[in-house]
Simulated scan of single mutants.
Amino acid sequence: MNFLRRIVRPQNKEDENFYYELKELLNFKPIKLSHYKKAFTHRSLKLVDAKGNPINYERLEFLGDAILGSVIASYLYKKVPEGDEGYLTQMRSKVVSRDHLNSLGKDLDLIRFVKSNITNNQISNNIHGNIFEALIGAIYLDRGYNYCHQFIYEQVILPYVDIERLEGKISSYKGYIIEWCQKNKKKYSFDSYEDTGNQSKKHFSVRVSIDGIMIAKGRATSKKKAEEIAAKRVYYAMQDRMKNS
C-alpha cells in the first residue's frame, strides 16, 4: 500500500486538484496521472514526446471507442438474449452514437479538464464525446479492463441504457405486428398448438407467418405469452422494414 501511495501522490497543487477531481469522477483512485492528462490534451497544443510522437487525446480516443463498444455489446448480448445480430448492432449504435457520447461528455463536464490553444467557441461540439472515449482509454491503460467496465456501467449503462426507450417502447408486439400488416395490406396468421413435450406443465407454441412465410416462433406456458414472444421476434427480424413503411 505504501508503494501505491507513492505512485499516486501528486507532485504539485495543480496535480493534486486534478487527482482529487478525477477520483471523484471515476469513483476509484487513478494511479498514473499522465494517462489522464493526455486524455485531456488537445492537438492544438502541438505537444510531442521525446521520440517526436504527438501527445494528445486522439489515440486514446481510438482505444476508448473500442473498449466502450465491447462493454456495451456484452451488456446487450446478455440483456436481450432474443435479439439477433442486426438488432444488437442497431442498439449498440444508438448507445455509442456521436450525439449520445457528446451528451455524456457534457453531463460529466469533461471539458473543464481540457488543455488547448483555442477558445471554447472554436472547439467542435464533438470534443465532448471524443474526450469521453479518450478517458475510457486512459482508464484502460491505468487500471485495466475491469475498471473500464465499472466506469462504463456506472456512467453509461445504469443512467442511460433503457432498452425499451432505445428501441421505442412497444406495449404489445402482437398488436404492433397486426397493425403494421393491416396498414401494409399483408396477410398474417398466429398459429398456436400445444407443445408440452416431456414437461409436466402445459406449454404452447405459436408460429407467426406473414404472406404465407413463417417468420418466427414463440413458446411459453400460455398461448398469450407465446404469441407475444413470437411477435417480438418478428419485430426484431423485420424492424428495419417495418420502420420504413
Rank of each mutant, 00 (worst) to 15 (best):
K174R: 14
G197K: 02
F28T: 05
G105H: 12
I31Q: 15
V8F: 12
G175E: 06
Y193D: 12
Y235A: 01
G212C: 06
Q11M: 15
K187H: 15
R165Y: 14
R241T: 13
A220G: 09
K224R: 15
N130T: 00
L45G: 08
P30S: 15
Y36D: 11
E227F: 00
F204T: 02
Q155Y: 03
A230G: 14
P159N: 11
N184K: 12
E179I: 01
T119F: 07
V95D: 12
A231S: 15
I157A: 05
N244K: 15
I67P: 04
I157C: 03
K169F: 10
Y87P: 01
Q90T: 05
G168Q: 10
D211F: 03
K106N: 08
S209T: 10
T221I: 13
Y145G: 01
I31N: 13
K46R: 12
G86V: 04
E16Q: 11
V206H: 08
L88H: 09
L76K: 08
Y235P: 00
Q150Y: 08
S97A: 15
R92Y: 01
K106A: 15
V206F: 05
E24W: 05
N53G: 09
N12Y: 12
K94M: 07
R5L: 13
E179R: 05
Q239T: 09
G144F: 07
